[in-house]
């Protein structure tokens, strides 16, 4: 098992295998998005309070979940990078950051657009909104710190520490609506209870899985580029660039 992981984690093997995986991620993404959009706009009903505005949720909630999910992936791979010094783990963390930041931004913006007509305000400084904004800043801090070093090894280590420190914000975001009084509503979906009509939940899940596939595909594409840049002096990369291989 350990040997197999190390073999896959070698930049060259990763580059070759990931090329074959990406289409298998893109196809489910497109299929799930199309079904998900159909479910969000046609199948799922309007809400008894919000009317059609409820449909913003089908982007907002999956994007917010992704913002947490990607951050956890980054923290785990940064930890693996620090402990086992696997180059590929650092690469996964680095290339995930802009994708995670984008999903966080999307969650904040869609939430704001929903908040104006529903709550009556674009933004408030309650615990949920503030902690999610801090998450965006953590992503941006990671990205800028990673770019601040010329040596990628130093950059990887320094930014790995930042991302692991910031991990503490994830449970705060998740539980903020339970721990404090907030304007943001509590979770409709928890491990024990779903307080949402079935078709709404299905639409939410479809988009959510579509986003997971999209992230995986984008992450692998970006990781392949990063591998090429970092391994530019190795022979196998030169063979690819000059076309000697094919």
């Amino acid at each position: 098992m350990w040997k197999w992981i190390q073999a896959f984690a070698s930049p060259r093997n990763f580059y070759q295998i990931s090329e074959k995986i990406i289409p298998w991620l893109m196809v489910p993404f497109i299929v799930l998005s199309l079904i998900g959009l159909y479910w969000s706009f046609v199948v799922s009903p309007t809400d008894y309070q919000q009317g059609d505005s409820v449909r913003i949720m089908y982007v907002h909630v999956p994007a917010a979940w992704m913002s947490l999910f990607i951050y956890i992936i980054m923290a785990i791979s940064s930890g693996i990078g620090l402990i086992w010094q696997i180059k590929l783990a650092y690469i996964v963390a680095k290339v995930s950051a802009p994708i995670g930041a984008s999903f966080t931004f999307l969650a904040l913006v869609t939430g704001s657009i929903w908040g104006k007509p529903m709550w009556g305000t674009w933004w408030v400084w309650d615990a949920r909104l503030t902690s999610e904004l801090i998450l965006l800043f953590l992503y941006l801090a990671y990205i800028s710190l990673n770019n601040a070093f010329d040596n990628p090894k130093t950059a990887d280590k320094a930014s790995a520490v930042i991302v692991i420190i910031g991990l503490v914000n994830i449970p705060i975001i998740y539980y903020s609506v339970d721990w404090w009084n907030s304007l943001h509503q509590g979770s409709s979906i928890s491990f024990t209870k779903i307080s949402m009509q079935q078709d709404m939940f299905i639409a939410l899940l479809l988009i959510s899985f579509a986003f997971k596939f999209l992230y995986s595909a984008l992450m692998l594409m970006r990781a392949r580029n990063e591998v090429l840049v970092r391994e530019q002096n190795s022979r196998w990369v030169r063979e690819i660039i000059t076309g000697a291989d094919k």
Partner: peptide, 11 residues
């Protein structure tokens, strides 16, 4: 400001 609860259902 209006607070919304976690219940989502059709009319």
């Amino acid at each position: 400001l209006a607070k919304h609860d976690e219940n989502y259902m059709p009319p």
